[in-house]
Amino acid sequence: MNPSLSLVQEMDAGCPVYALTWPPFSEVQFPTFKEMASQLNLAIREIQPRGPYRLAGYSSGGILAYAIAQRLLDQDETVSFLALIDVVLSSHPSSVSPTQMVQEVFLESLKVDDERFELLERLSGRSSISKFLEKAQKIGAIPLDRNLHNDILTYERAIQFQRALDSYQVPSLPIEAYQFYANEPLRHRARSRQNSADPEACSPLRGWDRVLSAKAIHAVPIPGDHITMMNVPANRQVLARCLLTALGQSATGAE
């Protein structure tokens, strides 16, 4: 099961929780972050026409949640809760291209020996995602009977999403946020990701104190690294309990 869906189930929030899907995808034109926020804002308001709104996002999805909050505030709506689940706000543009970044994220998910890992690492950023995945399948990193069509589409979307993210200028908003940060570092096998690690990734605030007051960010440690905080059931249960507690505090106005 998708870890995010498992998280929702384990929260037992006592209120409806909605997952926001990918925006419409086109090879010709992919929406900007502001356009995505506007599209998702319309979807949210079809279900709940007026605030207050409560939003959450994991990893780069947290920045999209912030962009949605920006859109809602621009419309004089109230955002009473914003959860950033291990969301890093980098202070400098990455030297790694969106294509290479997505390919290396895929690489990190593979359980392969060093020889095959290094072969695919040399290809990352130098070929299309389809050729990259086909090569991974050819050398046995992906099962030979697996249809790659959906994987290719998903990773192409991720590349376009990363490009939109790179061009988004994160504004300062009059809002408070919870940062549920992983208390263990994520160890990368890919050399370029090791060399381009964000210093903000070491801070519990994850760099958000550049656009928000440090007093407006409630940092909550969660066991595990960026991946295992969601994928390991025991860690995910801690995150679910902490989210519920934070939701209760936002509802009562308690600190």
Results as ranks from 00 to 15, higher is better:
176 E>G: 13
128 S>G: 15
95 S>L: 08
113 D>H: 13
96 V>G: 01
83 A>F: 04
152 I>Q: 07
86 D>W: 10
196 S>I: 07
72 L>I: 11
147 N>Y: 07
145 D>L: 09
78 T>F: 00
192 S>E: 03
175 I>V: 12
112 V>R: 03
95 S>C: 04
142 I>G: 04
110 L>C: 10
198 D>H: 07
87 V>N: 11
91 S>N: 06
131 K>G: 00
127 S>C: 10
85 I>T: 04
117 F>R: 13
99 T>Q: 02
110 L>G: 01
73 L>I: 15
79 V>W: 05
151 D>Y: 06
135 K>G: 00
144 L>I: 10
109 S>A: 10
146 R>N: 08
145 D>Q: 13
161 F>K: 05
192 S>P: 04
70 Q>C: 07
187 R>K: 06
162 Q>R: 13
136 A>R: 12
109 S>Q: 12
205 L>G: 00
181 Y>Q: 05
191 R>V: 13
208 W>R: 12
139 I>C: 00
198 D>E: 13
67 A>C: 05
131 K>S: 13
198 D>R: 12
171 P>M: 15
72 L>N: 10
100 Q>T: 13
173 L>R: 14
133 L>P: 01
189 R>Y: 06
161 F>E: 12
205 L>D: 12
195 N>T: 12
165 L>F: 12
118 E>T: 13
115 E>M: 08
88 V>Y: 00
188 H>P: 00
136 A>D: 03
101 M>E: 09
203 S>M: 12
81 F>P: 02
96 V>R: 05
138 K>W: 09
171 P>R: 15
81 F>Y: 11
127 S>G: 00
177 A>V: 15
184 E>F: 03
179 Q>Y: 12
117 F>A: 08
123 L>T: 08
72 L>Q: 04
95 S>K: 03
98 P>D: 15
151 D>N: 04
95 S>M: 07
166 D>F: 06
191 R>F: 01
194 Q>P: 04
115 E>H: 09
171 P>T: 15
132 F>C: 08
112 V>Q: 04
89 L>C: 06
203 S>I: 10
197 A>I: 10
161 F>Y: 14
